[in-house]
Write a protein that binds this DNA or RNA. Structure first.
Length: 135
RNA sequence: GCCGCGGGCUACUCCAUCGUGGUUGUCUGAUUCCUUUGGGAAGAAGGCGGUCGAGGAAAGUCCGGACAACGCAGCGCGCCGCGCCACCUAACGGGUGGGGUCUGUCGGCUUGCCGAUGGGUACAGAAAGUGUCGCAGAAAACAAUACCGCCACGGCUUUCGGGCCGGGGUAAGGGUGAAAACGUGCGGUAAGAGCGCACGCUUACGGUUGGUAACAGUCGUAAGGGAUAAACCUCGCGGGUUGAAAUGCCAUGUACAUCCCGGUUGUUCAGACGCAGCGCAGCUGCGCAGAACUACAGAGUUGCGCGCUCAGGUUUCCUUUGGGAAAGCCGGGAGGGGUAGGCAGCUAGAUCCUGCCGGUGACGGCAGGGCCAGAUAAAUGAUGGAGAUUCCGGUUUCGGCCGGGAUUACAGGAUCCGGCUUAUUGGUCUGCGGCGAAU
RNA sequence: GGCUCCGUAGUACAAUGGAUAGUGCGUAGGUUUCCGGAACCUAAAAUCCAGGUUCGAUCCCUGGCGGGGCUA
């Protein structure tokens, strides 16, 4: 049985790292989520191959309750599917930081978000070595 | 029972699995330190278990505080806020009770007042001064050059009813306007007018009665006065500034680095110490450090000014002996560099619940019990089941049964409280008014 | 988190508390021209919302809504 936990070490908390991610990262979108990603130097002590942050734009969702709800749904979808990502990356010994941005204009049910998350993980694993950089 | 208006309370419940932030117990334990090499101490992270984990508005950030930092002799001017009275409160622009005023409903009649019962109310001063009042209207605030009208007088005219012209009187009537300078009656008059009188109304002042007071009643005197202060303003009261990104500590890092601007003055004085001179008791001079006053350009006092406080005042060189230059010191500014990590602040408090007592009430007092989020790219979610509520469809022996759906609205802590405002679904309790029925 | 400013036609801006809210550009129609441009004429089109003060509100006051700026 895969590990479904989602601890602090798996979250992206450093302000510097986030700034670097947006400055140098690559991205692609699969409705309703956009992924921004950046390979990092491999540190030997790291227990997780990916650190991730979720974001819901305030411009599209003015109410804090709605933003919180969508972010929780995104986190649930990531939590249930991240094992697919870890399985491959832990063999290759690669290190990445992710930013998941919600791009839809309305709140969607968990099923659609989860499906999109699986698609994004699959696409990332396939194309991560030949994506062109953004910005 | 129905309808309308107002107020209070509440915010689906339980179980299982996965996941999550704090805290705590226990186990494992990277790594570091000490060491008598036996061991001991600290401890990132993780496993398992216990326990707690968003709101009535957490929102808007509109008021008031707590708390913190800096500041604080005092005075004047300005600015901002508040504004019936009393009380509550830590405080308030909030609340409670009362007064005035406006207004809805009902009843009564003397038809514009009284009574009952609700609701609203930024409600000090317009009789200190200034400003404004478009259009209409004769006139819009020291009343008025009187539009229609009314009136006498003079002149002309006449069909003898009157008509026209002139300079006057008149604000009672018409008309205009949101607003026209007390109301009614009588007197008065050429016609009129608070011009006079009676009754009444309003306002101011003084007395008096009730009330803590606002205010109300009453008596007397005076007056008859447009509105606007959410126009300027006057009066009274209050206000130091900033705001948890405050503030303190640790870590990282540079540099007591660079550039620009301004300032760095004099006088007086007693005593102590050191040195030198002399006529060696002592006196004089110089030095060191000190006190008082003072000039300077600043800084602080966070709207400004006065005032107050603070700090700078040394060294070297040049010199025409007036001073000048450089460095140091003090103050201000520019630009640049570093960190954006951790700990404290940070959650036990004007606290919550229950009961009793005081008060019309807001609220206060006493007793007992409870601990109720502390995150920091920021924790509450997902799945399944049961109950409850509710909606739709079918069925019915009218009790229900079956199937499907929804669980809702508004909405997420960010230092913490007290209010206000705004958003809002359903349920429930309750006050008042009306209608209907029964007794 | 705190502070501050603003909201008027499609757009950029005006408007002592007072008549039918004005100007430029734009839009639509017309005149002119062989056609178009330019010019001229005409028209449509707005005070963010809800209350209050006032005889009367774009303006004054209160409360919402929306937008911008400053502050590390």
């Amino acid at each position: 049985m895969p590990d479904f936990s989602f601890t602090k070490a798996e979250r992206l908390c450093s302000k510097k790292a986030i700034e670097r991610l947006f400055a140098e990262g690559h991205s692609f979108a699969k409705y309703p989520i956009r992924l921004v990603w950046l390979p990092m130097e491999v540190t030997p002590g790291a227990t997780y191959p990916v650190q991730v942050a979720m974001s819901v734009p305030r411009k599209k969702f003015k109410k804090a309750v709605v933003r919180n709800r969508i972010r929780r749904l995104m986190r649930e979808a990531y939590r249930m599917n991240k094992y697919r990502l870890y399985r491959e990356l832990q063999q290759e010994e690669e290190q990445y930081v992710f930013m998941l941005i919600y791009t839809a204009m309305e709140e969607l049910p968990l099923g659609i978000i989860e499906e999109s998350m699986q698609n994004i993980i699959r696409r990332f694993l396939k194309y991560r070595n030949d994506e062109s950089p953004v910005r």
